[in-house]
Amino acid sequence: MTFKHKKGIQKEPGVIKGVIVLVFFALVTAFIFNTLSPHRIALFGQWDPQKGVISANPDTSGAGHFTQIHSSKQVADMIRGKNCLIIDVRARDLFEQGHIPTALSFPINEFDENLPGMTARINQHDPVLLYCSSVYCTDSHTFADYLKSMGYKDIKIFSGGFAQWQEEGHKIETHEK
């Protein structure tokens, strides 16, 4: 009989039924776990670099809470106009290798140590512009959350960060301010 030799998936409805059971069980568990997990993510993230910093969790990363500047030319105008303090939140060695002109270095990983110096230097009403490495980095948003909780009012974020500044051919300072 030829039936015995046909072992294709179409002859094994039990296998497909099993796949449906396993996948259904996995999906239900996944969504329940994600809902209850402290590390849960939104069902839809912000993955369009044109709209700012990318994040799986735009609501909790702060990506939606602050004014984001997407144009490096606008940042250059702000530097020329001297109407904003630029803060680089990347690690200090990266800052020393190159940073946006006039930027001050307040690395996010040294936030507590630098806090007294920062509060002495930056008034709560001063407009500040934060940046980190690139559109893939959320450190500037985390830093902005810290500043906001300390009462800082006028916080903006350069979403493209140092990578965009460099790629678009702007002047880079390589010494620490």
Partner: peptide
């Protein structure tokens, strides 16, 4: 596609986990 990234990040690991245990 952007709209599928979070859904995949939530579900694919559990499909792997369930299949491994299974």
């Amino acid at each position: 596609p952007d709209a599928s990234i979070n859904i995949l990040a939530i579900t694919v690991p559990f499909v792997e986990l369930v299949c491994g245990f299974s």
